[in-house]
Design a binder for these strands. Sequence first.
RNA 1: GGGCGCUUAGCUCAGUUGGUCAAGAGCGCCGCCCUUACAAGGCGGAGGUCGCUGGUUCGAGCCCAGCAGCGCCCACCA
Length: 862
Amino acid sequence: MSELESRKRFEPREVEPRVMRRWLDSGLFHPEPEGSAAENSSIAIPPPNVTGALHMGHALNGAIQDALIRFHRMLGQRTKWILGTDHAGIATQRQVEKQLEAEGTTREQVGREAFVERVWRWREEYGGTIIEQFKRLGASCDYDDERFTLDDGYVEAVLKVFVDLYEQGLIYRDNYMVNWDPGLRSAISDLEVEQREVTDVLYEIAYPLAGGGELVVATVRPETMLADTAVAVNPDDERHRHLIGRTAILPLVGRELPIIADEYVKTDFGTGCLKITPGHDPNDFEIGRKHGLAEVTVIGEDGLMNANAGEFAGLPALEARKRVVQALGDAVRARTHYHHEVPYSQRSGERVEPLISLQWFMRMDELARPAIDAVREGRVRIHPESQARRYVEWLENIRPWCISRQLWWGHQIPVWYRGEETYVGTTPPEGDGWERDPDVLDTWFSSALWPFATLGWPHDTPELRAFYPTDVLVTARDILFLWVARMVMMGLRFPGDVPFTDVYVHSVIQAPDGRRMSKSLGTGIDPLDLIAGGPRPPVFQQGGTFPSYGADAVRFGLLAMSSTQDVRFSEEKIHQGAQLATKVWNASRFVLPRVGEGVRAAARPQTVEDRWILSRLQYAKRAMRRALDAFEFHHAALGLYDFVFGELCDRYIELVKPRLEDEPDVQATLLLVLRETLALAHPVIPFVTEEIWSHVPEAEGLLAGSRWPEVDESLIDPEAEAAVERQFAAVQAVRAWRDAVRVPPGPRLPARLDAPGYEQLADGIALLARLEWSPDGGDAIAAVPIPGGAVAVLATEAVDLEADRKLREQQRRTLRAEIARAEGKLANEGFVAKAPERVVQAERDKLEQLRRELAELDGAGG
RNA sequence: GGGCGCUUAGCUCAGUUGGUCAAGAGCGCCGCCCUUACAAGGCGGAGGUCGCUGGUUCGAGCCCAGCAGCGCCCACCA
């Protein structure tokens, strides 16, 4: 106990590692796979990249999940937080490629096998970093059962899904237009493409017509004209209708281009004539397939012009553009600056090159339908609702997914070729001469299996039975399609049930200045720096280092910031969390040593204040539970703060101080309140509460493993609550008066209570407002209005009479205004007739009370 | 081009079915207090036409419509 008493402040740096050790050693985080998913509770963590370091998004995501996990564990459920990392194909491959570059070599020089071996070694060395960082947060994941998306068992699941979907006709290989990332040298999916605004030059170029005349097309990419195979006009376009069926001659190349009619061509944009380049534009590709046009490619996967580009072959596309324009000479009729959006790769940041390429695709429509139904029918509930609409809308318009990637790190596609033969299977084919498809699967393909592949699917494991479907998936908005929707599709298709019953989509935390958090912009804030007191990033002007806020403070702050809306990072909220941890610590430091030997926690109310705190405690427990059940984490955090400060510490502990020493009943009550407060605070601030728990008499085991304090309805006491509310209004009124008239807060003033109904409350008022009730009359030198009456101050030295007069005048004004408002309301026939009786009566009571207060104020002279 | 969201105190944000909101918190600001849990504290205070306009209602920060500003998502106009 002395250890508790001697430290004025909670020291997270000292306490956190020790407490985490105890949790880990206890085995509490690792549930045995027993029972059914319906009775158990589980969450699959969004697997961080193995290359990852904990960022603010992880911290928020983790704080939310851990609050839920700890809460459900305390509810007595067998609770598993499924942990693991994602192999993150591109990101991880890049890490190792950089290493090789530093060594003056490349992956091509090293060779595939050695390279992959090297990535595995890299993973051995650095892959555990982020897991360790989750521990710093206090995340109660099942660390004894860590998964990786390239583990043997996981690979088995991935290959089975691929082969099954291939056999079911949903996965196929096709020569099709893809988003080619020239930086990565790989295809990427539509979801990995983002639109960026750029200013290009829009060229208008004349194409001669066979048999004389010309037409003019508009393009921002003249170099692609070398691959034109048609010109299209809108059939309703009067200007160009006569061209349909004629032939244009492609300048520089001389190819004959049929002039076709297609509704797609806008009549009010450009020249009304659209050059059709099926090989290098997604729209043109569609039109080309529709009209059976030839597909010519002039830009290769290396970003250079290929042999089809004739004299321009070998040039980078941009260089070729200049040269083509030059070569066109007078045929270029106009150049205008043109502001538009073009596709960029989110992966490499390079401008996407649409190319026709032989890739593997997955048909999504058939998979999407059940996933839409699951949400529509409420088998998967997405919070907030607006995200459910986004989800459904996206799935309704879903297109095939390009799943092959030209990388080395990942799940290699289980397809082998031998001449014209193709073999698809989970194990290599018999016989010689087979060559495996070199590509790997999009990382999101394996991520889509996460909630069940981690539990041992495709085998019928105890883990799968005990924890699938999981309860809730917690994630940010940006991967709703990329990941969440695909998990639902795969869950329904393979294990045959939704992967989770709820999806909570939380906020993205922006930098304090409203920009995106990013390391390269200097706007990133490392949660570990907040926990341990690292340097403030440049986005904070003041520089220096953060205080060592500790994990509890960071968790609290993040929960308080969490919302369904994007929010700016607020260090103040973290600070608020530190205040809460310190407060709980100090309150415990005060209470615990004063609890007598053998006193057990129990509700033993002696006074109205005791009944009040017990009632408020029930409310706090209920509010916390509701907030967590409803995914309202800011309410959970801020409500806890309000209870601890506003009710437990500033009021109750202060009220109870004189009685605490010798009254075992008070000690028992306070001990109960403290114990239950620690419990209900634990999901939010686990470290400090666990540490205090070890000092609580009769507290056995870990708080993390103890039971959630249920609401005791019999202790709810509206009468006591109302009484103590009045008591505090009175205390506050007297304090404000003292402050205004410059009576120091310390000395006790003689006073008389001129208000009915305060019999049980008078002692508390005297204690907190520093008054001494005087039995005999005496001259009142001031009357301080309190609800339903006044406190008459009988005598004192040095009252600032002028200030007193001003204060009273101001109070009169306020009261009169309020009385007028209430009278007006009650004079309104509509209000009296239509408002509920309860509301009308409350207004009448309020008016009566206001009048009494004003009378007291006037009666006191001045 | 569609869709969604936001706009409340100097700053960052709460405000859950419209009355119990005479609009709150943290930080910042002003004043008092080292009262024996906590000065990284306690107490008190200043500060808001709840973006604008109109509507519904006995009653609107909350519901509806329009407008303005900001943000996000989706989308194949060269």
